[in-house]
């Protein structure tokens, strides 16, 4: 199962991006601010016009409901217009599925449990902390049981423990065959938890491959302008700048 694009261009933001993502892997999209990470993620989710294909079928030609059931997209904005309960928020992930209420309830329960939100299920969104809110928004994506999860900075407002828990959760989902694509800012998280890293700079893919191969100090200096060095053992790396 693949999510691929060939020569994807979004005027002013992405230039000739070609890549093929595999399900069962955690892929991290990295790059400095304005590199085009969120644009690439939106395009891969089928929200921008472009030649993106799912298992060889162009996303634009798939029925919207099939696309929505297959790809779960978590935007960076984190908007929730109304003061829903955590459970009602997660239930929005079931909208593309026209399944029986019992099946919906099962998927919602599983998503809430996976993100440690059982105790907060009846709490209104306005009363959540930033981290709880971020987890509730991700629970909405998980409740949809998509084959692909595309999340834009899902760890941004989480504390360290929940960041680690979530990264392990993503790993477990990948091991079950789901495709995980994350926009990240933390290079160490990408180094330690991703199977593959794609680095963008000013709309171009400048590196794509295994984290150990891609994230070398030369590339970090070239893209981020930082002189950095990796410390620690594989799987527990830290970046010293």
């Amino acid at each position: 199962m693949t999510l691929a694009t060939e020569n994807l261009a979004v005027p002013g933001r992405l230039h000739g991006v070609s890549l093929s993502l595999r399900a069962g892997e955690v892929t991290a999209i990295l790059g400095p601010n304005g590199a085009g990470k969120s644009t690439l993620l939106s395009a891969l989710a089928g929200l921008l016009p472009g030649p993106v294909s799912l298992d060889g079928n162009l996303l634009g030609q798939l029925p919207a409901s099939v696309r929505a059931q297959t790809i779960g997209y978590l935007p960076q904005s984190g908007e929730v217009a109304w003061n829903l309960s955590v459970e009602s928020l997660a239930a929005l992930g079931r909208l593309p599925h026209r399944t029986a209420p019992a099946q919906d309830a099962q998927a919602i329960d599983a998503a809430l449990a996976a993100l440690d939100l059982d105790d907060l299920r009846h709490r209104p969104v306005a009363e959540l902390s930033g981290g709880e809110r971020a987890r509730a928004l991700l629970a909405r994506v998980l409740a949809g049981t998509p084959r692909w999860i595309l999340a834009d900075e899902p760890l941004a407002s989480l504390d360290l423990a929940h960041q680690q828990a979530l990264l392990h959760r993503f790993r477990a989902l990948a091991q079950r065959g789901q495709g995980i694509v994350l926009v990240l800012h933390d290079l160490a998280q990408a180094m330690n938890h991703a199977d593959r890293v794609i680095v963008l700079d000013r709309g171009f893919v400048v590196a794509d491959g295994l984290p150990d191969d891609v994230l070398d100090p030369v590339l970090i200096e070239q893209v981020w302008g930082l002189q950095a060095q990796w410390l620690g053992e594989p799987g527990h790396r830290a970046l010293a700048c």
Partner: peptide, 20 residues
């Protein structure tokens, strides 16, 4: 109704949920 529910999450998320 369902599309309005999805719009609670903003336009991009609503479109990703299949809203036209």
């Amino acid at each position: 109704g369902r599309a309005l529910d999805a719009l609670t999450l903003g336009e991009a998320a609503a479109r990703s949920l299949g809203v036209d």
